[in-house]
């Protein structure tokens, strides 16, 4: 187990930085998710931690010791990949034993650990069969098992490990991983583009966008107070409404309508926007007038798409809510954010 620290790490694959300067510490025993769209640099960051990629600049520290020059093998980490990697020639049990065997663990210990992991991934009945005849689901479970088999690893890294898993099995594995973390308290870093996977698994979610970390926070923090408009958009479905507004002191103006803010934000120039989640808007007889453009009924709620002073917004209305003839939209107090150049100012 180790505290993993990234010290001014940057990476370039030739032109421009795929990863802009990042300094961050993953605390010992924490469950982290790196969340972002494809191409945001999250896998690069993961591979820098495991040593599969050497950063162009900066240092990687495990418990304060610089491991940047160390090879993957010597960093003592486990990593699970997007697509199942299994050793065709070996049985399921031999696959699981492989990382231990390579490091010369005593046979008794290997047997004990392999047995435990087999039970954990539910493949006891397959222990003696060749791994290559299994389904993609089972193969990925073996990959997961190989990641968990060593007790002394500094960290376990997951690179979109549930991509190939059948949707109906996903939530089970996702919750198993979470339970595993609660039980063993190892440092785990989980890369994904799926908000549900990230928010469900991690205590702390690191949201990445265009090679930068835009916010680190608990699932609740990311939902309630996104630091960047991208976080607001990416977390939640539909994402946060971002409405261009003029700000004067403690008043925002949208399409000629004034909205009272809790207090006056500190403005540093640049474009100003309001951010509010569809869940924090109420359609009714009070508030600012809107015109409805489209209503999506998702059964448990209705997503009302409307026009507010020339800006498209989405409102989440309860299942059996009445849509008034002259609809107005009210902002839930305390949920309105002010963004200057996409970063939260209030």
């Amino acid at each position: 187990m180790a505290r993993i620290e990234l010290d001014r790490v940057r990476h370039s694959y030739g032109s421009g930085y795929a990863l802009k300067e990042i300094s961050h510490a993953f605390e010992d025993g924490g469950a982290y998710a790196l969340l972002g769209p494809s191409g945001c640099g999250k896998t690069t960051l993961l591979n820098i931690i495991s040593g599969l990629v050497a950063p162009s600049e900066g240092r990687v520290l495990f418990d304060g010791a610089d491991v940047t020059p160390l090879a993957t093998r010597d960093r003592n980490i486990a990593q699970v990949f997007q697509f199942p990697v299994i050793y065709d020639t070996m049985t399921v049990a031999e696959n699981l034993a492989f990382p231990l065997k390579n490091r010369g663990a005593p046979k008794a210990e290997i047997d004990r650990r392999v047995e435990e992991i087999l039970r954990l991934i539910g493949l006891e009945h397959r222990a003696r069969s060749k791994a290559r005849g299994l389904t993609a689901d089972d193969k990925q479970k073996i990959s997961l098992g190989r990641g968990l088999v060593r007790e002394d690893v500094n960290a376990i890294l997951f690179d979109e490990p549930l991509t190939v898993i059948d949707p109906h099995l996903k939530w089970k594995l996702r919750s198993q991983l979470k339970a595993l973390h609660r039980e063993f308290r190892r440092t785990m870093v989980y890369v994904t583009h799926d908000q549900t996977e990230a928010l469900t698994f991690a205590d702390k979610v690191v949201v990445m966008f265009e090679g930068e970390i835009v916010q680190i926070g608990t699932p609740a923090e990311l939902f309630e107070t996104p630091r960047h408009t991208f976080v607001g958009y990416f977390i939640g479905s539909p994402g946060m409404n971002v409405i261009p507004a003029r700000i004067d002191g403690a008043t925002a103006t949208v399409g000629g309508q004034a909205i009272k803010l809790d207090r006056a934000p500190t403005l540093t120039g640049g474009k100003t926007e309001l951010g509010i989640r569809p869940e924090h808007l109420t359609l009714g007889l009070t508030g600012l007038p809107v015109s409805i453009t489209r209503i999506e009924d998702i059964g448990r709620a209705r997503i009302v798409h409307a026009d507010l002073g020339g800006n498209p917004i989405a409102i989440r209305a309860p299942e059996d809510a009445e849509i008034p003839a002259e609809p107005k939209v009210a902002f839930t107090p305390g949920k309105l954010g002010v963004y200057v150049d996409s970063w939260r100012a209030l």
Binding site: S50, G51, L52, Y87, N102
Partner: peptide, 27 residues
């Protein structure tokens, strides 16, 4: 052979011979 196999082998601490025997030769 996908890159992930070589990466996984590095992570698993496999020797050059093990990589040949269990990844390259079977493929």
């Amino acid at each position: 052979i996908p890159d992930a196999y070589y990466q996984a082998a590095k992570i698993d601490g496999a020797s050059r011979w093990a990589v040949f025997r269990h990844i390259q030769l079977p493929k």
